[in-house]
Design a protein around this nucleic acid. Structure first.
Lengths: 240, 240
DNA sequence: TTGAATTCATATCGATCGATAGACATTATG
DNA sequence: CATAATGTCTATCGATCGATATGAATTCAA
């Protein structure tokens, strides 16, 4: 998937300029199908023909709207970033402010639980999100053409915030190696229920991931966050 | 990659019966190249031509030894299981025995640190292991033809052991949901440095993963294990 | 209503994929 | 050395991939 000359995306990377209404609908159908296929089969495994069929259009429509397979792939990455920001940005901004205003370790702990909980919801609760996570994780591990975008727009903002929260909780120097490692371990443990969901569910003996399961996962993560606080000797830790 | 009729693998799935010495060497070269390619590009992205070129053989050699692309893929999965067991089985057996003999929570905590440390070593220290982890995680998330093998031979033994250790540490009912979830979160957090290594290193500002980095990662994981013990109120927890 | 802009389907191209036929080379054994 | 078993190559097949040339159908502003 080398660089290609996009007809439409090259001129208007985000939104078609003078398009008709029907065109925008078709474009969205293609994008949805592409997200599904790329997420399920990966950039190499997905085929433009299957995407076109799933979207109910013919093959050249993909070229018309996205310039080719790679343009469509990048558009998928941008769409994921858009949805992620729509779901997380308000919360991240709130927490960011409370950090700047010097929140207490306990308040930071509550905020961290809320952020992680929102990430769990984003990955699990919504129908298509697991497909998005597959897309993101694959792109991250393969360092494909959308790596930079995902790192800067999706990973960094959330990760910076989580590191700041952990630093506030434990009292560690802000953005030093230790809270960074703790943040990495915490966030990447969520892969158990996105990337590795099939094996995790099989191991837990859960047929699928329902509301009760999500609640238990959140409880386990909350407990882990409490332990981070307890391990540092700061905050009110555990009741015992 | 549907089912295919393997010429050699069908008759002797593990080792060629009456082969010459040179044949075994070629077979190994192909297997090594295939592990690399499948791990880097995935089952769909890897091509038999590239594998053959990397192994220094011509294309039909793959068919001769492994019956085709899928046979080669499955042989890679078996090889990973073999290497994993060679690296971990002795340790797992030791710990298993100490569990059966009723080890103390503190002893279980030490054992858990050793097991996790060995997993880190397996993933990071060895040169090709990251490629193996990519292979395994991809297969797990895609539920490909080797899913069952990897679950039973690679995942289950280690996971069962880790759950038993955590149960012993925290005093939770053995193999109940809570220690299972804790084990899942702990193990899957290692994906930060296998699957997500590029983004993790970039985020930490580390150019590569050297001895010092591995030591810091192990320290962070040890701390997390200590916190599991501390959070349960069992064991001698932290010095403070 | 008319006509230019936009949409997207039919048909096909060249490249590359995995697999195989068939011949040749190498190895071990008597 | 002779012979069979084993190993490996060149050449090529059919399938499928992504891309595109061409043009008809649709949309919307004037």
């Amino acid at each position: 998937m080398a660089s290609s000359t996009a007809k439409r995306e090259a001129e208007a990377p985000q939104a078609p300029a003078g398009g008709y209404r029907k065109g925008a609908e078709t474009r969205l159908r293609i994008l949805t199908a592409a997200l599904h296929e790329f997420g399920m089969a990966g950039a190499a495994g997905a085929t433009t023909r299957k995407i076109a069929q799933e979207a109910g259009v013919s093959l050249p429509a993909l070229t018309y709207y996205f310039g080719g397979k790679e343009g469509l792939y990048l558009a998928c990455a941008r769409e994921i970033v858009r949805e992620y920001q729509a779901h997380m940005l308000a919360m991240l901004a709130d927490v960011q402010i409370s950090i700047a205003e010097g929140a207490s370790p306990d308040a930071a702990r509550t905020s961290l639980k809320a952020v992680i909980g929102a990430l769990v919801d984003l990955q699990i609760a919504r129908q298509q999100s697991d497909v998005w996570m597959s897309f993101v994780l694959r792109e991250i591990s393969e360092q494909g053409p959308a790596f930079g975008l995902l790192f800067e727009q999706l990973w960094s903002p959330g990760a910076d915030l989580i590191v700041d929260l952990i630093s506030r909780i434990t009292g560690a120097p802000p953005r030093s190696t230790q809270p960074r490692l703790q943040a990495l371990l915490l966030v990447s443990s969520l892969t158990a229920f996105s990337l590795a969901r099939p094996i995790s569910l099989k191991y837990l003996g859960w047929p699928r991931l329902g509301r009760a399961g999500v609640a238990e996962i959140k409880a386990a993560l909350d407990q882990q966050i409490d332990q981070i606080a307890a391990g540092s000797g700061a905050g009110s830790a555990l009741p015992e």
